[in-house]
Computed example of a mutant assay.
Amino acid sequence: MRVVVGECQVDYGGRLTAHLPMAKRLILVKSDGSVSVHADDRAYKPLNWMSPPCTMTVVEAEGFDGLSGVELDPRIREVWVVKARNGDILQIGLGCIELDRCIELGVDPGLQKDGVEAHLQALLAENPDTFGEGWTTVQREYMTAIGPVDILARDADGGYVAIEVKRRGEIDGVEQLTRYLELMNRDPLLGQVRGVFAAQLIKPQARTLASDRGIDCVVVDYDALRGMDRAEERLF
C-alpha cells in the first residue's frame, strides 16, 4: 500500500462529475489498484475513489491538459490520472507532499465471523426461501477481487442476488456489500446483481443507507432457522 499525505485537488469525470478544491488530504493506493482520497473525518467512506480494475499514470502539471473545463491550482506539481475501464477518470493534482510511503501489509486473513454469524450464513444458504419463494443458492463465499460475498443466490426471476449476512447489521456491513456489488455488476456473466443485507438486528442508520443504495434489508430469526422456535408451540 502507498500512503500519501499532502495538498491535492481532486476532480472526477465520467458518468458523474465532482470537484474537491485544494486541501490537505490522505491518499491511499492499494495493491489491488484502487485509489481513494480521505479527509480527517467520515471514517466509513472516502471523499472520492476509483475501484479496481483501473490504471494510474503520473504526469507533470506543467502543460498538462486534463479533464475538460478543469483548471489546475497553480500549486500543483504533478497529476495522477486514474482511469477505469468504463472511461471514468479520477484526476488528483498534488502540491506539497508531507508523507509518501509504501508499506507492505501482507495477506489479510479477512474478517472472522463469530460462531453465530457463521452458522446463520450456513442456515440461510440451506434455506434460500427465507428471502422469497423460488429463490435458490448458487454458492456460499462467492469470491470477488476484494473478498468473498457470503451468499450468491438467484431470485424467482432468475436474477443474481448478493447476500451479506451479519449478526448485527451496521453501516460498515452495508458499505462492504456496496463494494461487492460495484465489482459484480461489471461482470458480464452475472449481469445486473442486486443486494440483500441480512441480519438478526439492523440498525436504523444501516437500513437508511441500504435503502439509499438500492439494497434490500431482511431481518432473520436465528432460532426459527435452527428449528428452535416452533410457531405451533407459541402462546402468543
Rank of each mutant, 00 (worst) to 15 (best):
A122R: 07
R226C: 12
E104I: 06
S211G: 15
R168E: 04
G158P: 05
F236M: 09
S211P: 02
D40Q: 14
W80T: 12
V220W: 12
V161L: 07
L177Y: 09
G227T: 11
L16W: 11
I92H: 14
G214F: 06
W80Y: 12
R230Q: 13
G147K: 04
R226Q: 11
D187S: 01
G87R: 09
L105H: 01
D216G: 10
R25F: 02
R207S: 10
G6N: 02
L225R: 02
R140W: 08
R154D: 00
L124A: 06
R15W: 05
Q192K: 12
F197T: 03
D108N: 12
E78N: 12
I215M: 06
M22R: 00
L20H: 09
V116D: 02
L183V: 03
I89R: 01
V107D: 11
G147I: 11
A198R: 09
L105Q: 03
I76L: 01
P21D: 03
V35T: 13
W135F: 10
A145E: 14
Q9E: 13
Q192R: 13
V107Q: 09
K24M: 07
G63T: 09
Q176D: 14
A162N: 11
V193H: 06
G69E: 00
A39M: 09
R234I: 02
Y180M: 06
D114S: 03
G134W: 00
M50D: 08
E133G: 03
L225G: 07
H119G: 08
G214A: 08
V3W: 06
V5A: 06
V79K: 04
K24E: 01
D150M: 06
M228A: 15
L123D: 08
L152T: 13
V116P: 06
D150R: 14
G169C: 11
I103E: 04
Y12D: 00
A206G: 10
G13Y: 04
G115R: 11
I92P: 05
N86S: 13
D157G: 05
G195Y: 02
Q91I: 01
L190V: 07
W80I: 10
A210P: 10
L28C: 12
C54F: 04
W135G: 06
R101A: 13
F236L: 11
P74Y: 00
V174Y: 05
E78S: 11
G95A: 01
G6K: 00
L72M: 15
Y12E: 07
F64A: 04
L235H: 12
K24S: 09
E78A: 09
L105S: 06
G106D: 00
R15L: 01
A210C: 03
L16F: 10
V81A: 02
I171H: 05
F197V: 09
L72G: 00
Q205Y: 08
G159F: 07
V5K: 13
R194M: 05
D65R: 13
S36C: 09
D216Q: 15
A206N: 08
D150W: 08
L123W: 10
N48S: 14
L20S: 06
A61W: 07
L189M: 13
L90I: 04
Y142G: 10
D114L: 02
Q112Y: 00
D11L: 05
R168G: 02
L26G: 00
M184L: 15
E232C: 08
T137G: 09
L152F: 04
F131R: 14
D65G: 00
E117R: 13
A153R: 12
V37S: 14
W49C: 10
Q192L: 08
Y160P: 00
